[in-house]
Design a binder for these strands. Structure first.
Length: 570
DNA sequence: AACATACCCAACCGCGTCTTA
DNA sequence: CTAAGACGCGGTTGGGTATGT
């Protein structure tokens, strides 16, 4: 090692003398430096740190240093070893290339599969993902993923297999490619994570069941889930997505125009329910935005971009552009298959806790159902169980959904192009699939079109509820003329809207029978212990709900606070 | 063979968080 | 308690290589 080091230092010296210009970036080359050996100092005597590719000599020095002193204290490397690299650079080099047990080479199939799963769970949490992939670095995973999505984008394939598509996190991430334009801010992932209760591994156990795969990772409840889920204060942030309670505030948001704090969750809510007003805890501010962004504003040609014409406001073009993300989110049209995402369970929570946006008052002790992770967990668990029973039929049902020409195929349901690729992931008995809760709630979810959608372009994707009655309705849906469905769809958000908005739609609603079914479904979700309570509340709630046709809406509207309280029971 | 495009990957940058004095 | 430094993370960039036309 010692010899190697000497050789390397010699080589380095040679390079420094002969060809350092080829290594140093232009700005360094042109800067007035006085260089000595392998390091350089500027006129102030500060070290001029080298950038660019590492040489073998530098690697050797770094390795030697770490061998002696261990990892950490990276800034000391420069001082002690004479390496003219900043500590950051050293750490990166070590972590990504020099540290032992690094796995080199292409990802194995298992690794790729795991990455997909992890990404569906975690989003762009590369470091966390890397923790599940021994020998792999976050950078590697990130690069792999970015390449992958690029490839799939080009191929017009959805990012995830259909089985994964309903995972709240994933769905929210993909789903937020609203109109092909995505809205992303640094903070969104945190928000999403905060608002995504994961029943670990449930969504993925079905993937490649024959592979006897790994899942070496212990079921991971995101730290923030545990904390925020059970009353962590940061969870409250979701009740007011426009406000960044946490320390992380999207950098971009500060510059967005007339749309303060345009974190993605603003759209999470909007999209999940086809409402386009940023959900602000402060109704006044919403009104303010409404004034600034009148209905029908089409300054950027996305009048209906956010679902339908209920649009009360939308971010300005400037804001959008500022929110434009990394290549995970695609330009308009690139993701032709992206459709209205399946409604998110978390959306329901958002919905539930949106009294202020809807003008309903909720008891203070329950102002944020987000305070209760138990409810979410219950719902997830219930939906998993339920869909395990019903997945197969609903899958068939959804697959048979009529796709009219011009419709945008719903990637989350099934993309024909992708079907073959993901066939091997399919498991009719998967606990994932179309979940009861999600399907159930999807009735409240108007469509968000992928490509600057107007209502004429895309019928809603409605996940068939797995219960018998609802399922038949879903089948009806497939047979329902598109125009009629559109009308139907337009009316659906009424459950969310103030009464004056409710009059916008006159489509069919759901009758008492449906109410019962839904009530039963929720009761089922809540389990025996809670179901009777819930049913009582639902019975009370439906009678006073804003719309007979919106059972869930009215349930959530009127009763979920109580449910929320229930969820806080030990 | 020349060019264009896609792909891969290492490295940098900026910011947030953690730690420590 | 606070400020500064260290560290970690995620997004982005740019160069080299492979592949297609």
């Amino acid at each position: 090692m010692r010899e190697l080091l000497i050789i390397c230092v010699k080589e380095m010296s040679r390079m420094t003398n002969e060809g350092k210009d080829s290594v140093l970036p232009k700005d360094q080359i042109e800067s007035p430096l006085v260089e000595e050996g392998n390091s350089a100092r500027n006129i102030n005597g500060e070290m001029n740190l080298k950038k660019g590719p590492w040489t073998a000599a530098e690697d050797a020095i770094l390795m030697e240093y770490v061998k002696k002193h261990g990892e950490g204290n990276w800034n000391a490397v420069q001082k002690h070893s004479g390496l003219s690299r900043c500590g950051k650079s050293c750490r990166l080099r070590w972590a990504n290339h020099l540290r032992p047990n690094l796995k080199k080479g292409a990802f194995t199939q298992e690794e790729e599969q795991l990455i997909i799963e992890l990404h569906a769970k975690m989003g762009n949490k590369w470091a966390r993902m890397a923790a599940h992939l021994p020998g792999r670095t976050d950078n590697e995973i990130k690069n792999y993923w970015n390449t992958r999505i690029k490839r799939r984008q080009r191929a017009g394939l959805p990012l995830y297999p259909p089985e994964v598509s309903l995972h709240p996190y994933r769905a929210s991430q993909q789903g937020l490619n609203i109109g092909g334009t995505s809205y992303r801010s640094k903070g969104h992932h945190d928000h999403l994570l905060h608002n995504c209760y994961e029943i670990p591994d449930v969504p993925f156990d079905s993937l490649k069941p024959s592979q006897g795969r790994i899942s070496n990772s212990a079921p991971e409840l995101p730290d923030n889930m545990l904390m925020k889920g059970m009353g962590g204060s940061r969870y409250d942030s979701f009740s007011s997505p426009l406000m960044y309670h946490g320390q992380k505030r999207p950098r971009e948001s500060s510059t967005s125009v007339s749309y303060s704090g345009s974190g993605r969750n603003d759209f999470l809510f909007s999209e999940s329910f086809g409402l386009s007003f940023p959900f602000d805890s402060d109704l006044n501010s919403t009104n303010k935005i409404q004034q600034q962004q009148p209905l029908g504003d089409d300054q950027d040609g996305h009048t209906l971009l956010y679902g339908n014409n209920f649009s009360a406001s939308k971010p300005t073009t400037a804001a959008m552009k500022l929110e434009l993300p990394s290549l995970q989110y695609f330009d308009s049209g690139s993701w032709g298959v992206i459709s209205s995402p399946p409604p998110l369970l978390e959306s329901v929570d958002t919905f539930i806790q949106s009294p202020r946006a809807t003008g309903t008052t909720v008891g203070s002790n329950c102002s944020s159902p987000r305070n209760s992770g138990l409810l979410d967990a219950l719902l997830h668990e219930a939906k998993a169980l339920s869909s395990a029973k019903n997945h197969y039929s609903s899958e068939k049902s959804s697959n048979s959904s009529t796709v009219t020409p011009g419709d945008i195929a719903d990637s989350s349901t099934l993309n024909a192009c992708d079907a073959a690729e993901w066939d091997n992931y399919s498991d009719p008995l998967s606990p994932l699939g179309h979940t009861t809760a999600t399907s159930f709630f999807s009735k409240c979810t108007p469509p968000i079109s992928a490509s600057g959608s107007s209502l004429d372009e895309q019928p809603p994707h409605i996940e068939p509820f797995t219960g018998r009655e609802i399922k038949s309705e879903a089948e009806d849906y497939a047979l329902t003329p598109v125009r009629e469905r559109e009308r139907d769809t337009i009316t659906r958000p009424d459950a969310l809207l103030p009464s004056d908005w409710l009059e916008q739609g006159s489509g069919k609603g759901y009758g008492v029978k449906d109410q019962v079914v839904m009530t039963d479904a929720i009761a089922a979700l809540l389990g025996d212990d809670l179901s009777s309570d819930y049913k009582q509340m639902a019975a009370a709630g439906t009678s006073s709900g804003p719309s007979q046709g919106w059972v869930l809406g009215s349930c959530a509207w009127n009763n979920m606070p109580a449910v929320c309280q229930m969820s806080e029971l030990p």
